[in-house]
Every structure is written in C-alpha cells, then in structure tokens.
Amino acid sequence: MLTALAGLGLGLSLIVAIGAQNVFVLRQGIRREHVLAVVIICALSDAALIAAGVAGLGFVLSAAPWLVVVARWAGALFLLTYAALAARRAWRGG
C-alpha cells in the first residue's frame, strides 16, 4: 500500500506542476481551440511515458546507451522548435 501511495503521489506531483505541457493545455482551453484533441493527446502521451517507465525503459536505455543520446537530441530539437513557434507568435502579437 505504501508503494502505491508513493506512486500516486509522484504521478500527482507531475500533473500538478505547471510545466510547458500544462501551460499549453491551459492556453488551448482558454482560447477554446482543439481542446478535446489536445487533452486526449496529452493524456495518452503521459500514459505512454508512465507505462514505458514502469515497463523498464531504464533497463533498455542502460543496455543501449546510444538511445539516450538520440532521446536527448530529439528532445532538444522538439523544445527548440516549440520555442521558435512561441517566439514567432509573440513577435506577431495578438
């Protein structure tokens, strides 16, 4: 039971924290644009990442260290693209 509560607390802490994904979901909700699609995609993405972690992705990554490098660069590329799109929206305004 203690392990289940620790997992529930960790999951809650990930959801409650206002990060880039939560800000995006809130922004889309406020603008009333594609709300259902955004919520479904984000929920499924979170579920897939949690399932991968539980299924032992750490073990796979330790067995194939090159996957860590690929994931790092893919994440950096995603964040840079997201930042460029946000900067473009800010530059253009309203």
Rank of each mutant, 00 (worst) to 15 (best):
G9Q: 07
S62W: 01
V23R: 01
A90P: 01
L14Q: 11
A83K: 08
G19E: 07
P65G: 14
Q28L: 13
F78A: 10
I50C: 05
L14S: 04
S13F: 01
L14D: 06
I40L: 12
A4L: 15
L44E: 00
L8R: 04
L61I: 13
V39G: 04
A51D: 09
R27C: 07
Y82T: 14
I18S: 14
V35S: 00
G56N: 07
A47F: 14
V54T: 10
A17G: 08
S62C: 01
V54P: 00
S45F: 01
I15K: 03
G7V: 11
L67S: 03
C42P: 00
G29N: 04
I41A: 15
N22D: 13
G75P: 03
A48D: 05
A71V: 09
A17C: 12
A64S: 01
A17Q: 10
A64D: 03
A48I: 10
G58H: 04
R92E: 09
G7R: 13
L61T: 04
L5R: 03
I30D: 09
L14F: 12
I40T: 10
R32C: 05
R31K: 12
I40W: 05
W91R: 15
G53E: 00
A52T: 02
A90G: 06
G7T: 03
L10A: 14
I41M: 10
C42N: 06
A90Q: 01
A43K: 00
C42H: 08
R72Y: 03
L67P: 01
A52R: 00
R31H: 12
